[in-house]
Design a protein around this nucleic acid. Structure first.
Lengths: 111, 111
DNA sequence: CAGAATCCTATGTGATACTG
DNA sequence: CAGTATCACATAGGATTCTG
């Protein structure tokens, strides 16, 4: 249901990437599997506050966009589903690093 | 109504900035006034498809976040309201440039 | 364990009309 | 011209339950 096509029709490159990185949980997901592949359950535990439904939804979105890759293995009586970044996904990491640097400079800590 | 506070409470720097750049029209707005200040009407004409309501809403959001600055002058019988980037806003431009570069590499042109 | 399917609500967003 | 207000609808997103 996620409108990958809509996104691709955005010929504006700014819209294209901000529609990806701006989606809820997407940055967190990319960041979490940036270092090492993770299983679905692990991710769920890492990313606090993200419902299972949203996690699945956004992972699918990232897979459709070629940013995340999913491997499934059938074990005895359950499934092991792991997620990791594609080359394309990995190339987002340096951008996200500069984003983090910017935030840390400009976040006003009111806590 | 816009939850600036919610955003500030996001102690996660990735959430912080992606909540800004991911908002609809925000990237376009920042980009459009990146080079030179623009009046409200100019902006409206630049950013196709953005309703007046949304434009105002997102501009206010950016002002609250210290990214955009607004100057108002009273002319004879109307108001001249111009918008431009704060220093903080300007510091977003290089990040957005790398975002554009990434997009141009990875956008799959289906048109 | 990983995922699918429903239901339900809050929020986002467009269209339109109004104001100084 | 710049901004406000209101309605009406679409989408996002949480909670919960079900399946192999």
């Amino acid at each position: 249901m996620y409108s990958l096509n809509n996104i691709k029709q955005n010929n504006c490159p700014l819209k294209f990437i901000s529609n990806i990185l701006g989606k809820k949980w997407v940055c967190e997901i990319i960041w979490e599997i940036g270092n090492d592949k993770k299983r679905f359950g692990e991710l769920q535990r890492c990313i606090e506050g993200c419902s299972k439904k949203m996690l699945i939804q956004q992972l699918e979105f990232l897979i459709e966009n070629g940013i995340v890759i999913n491997d499934k293995k059938e074990l005895k009586n359950n499934i092991q589903s792991t997620y990791y970044l594609s080359e394309c996904g990995v190339s987002l990491l340096p951008i996200m690093e500069t984003m983090i640097l910017w935030s840390n400079k400009h976040i006003k800590c009111d806590c």
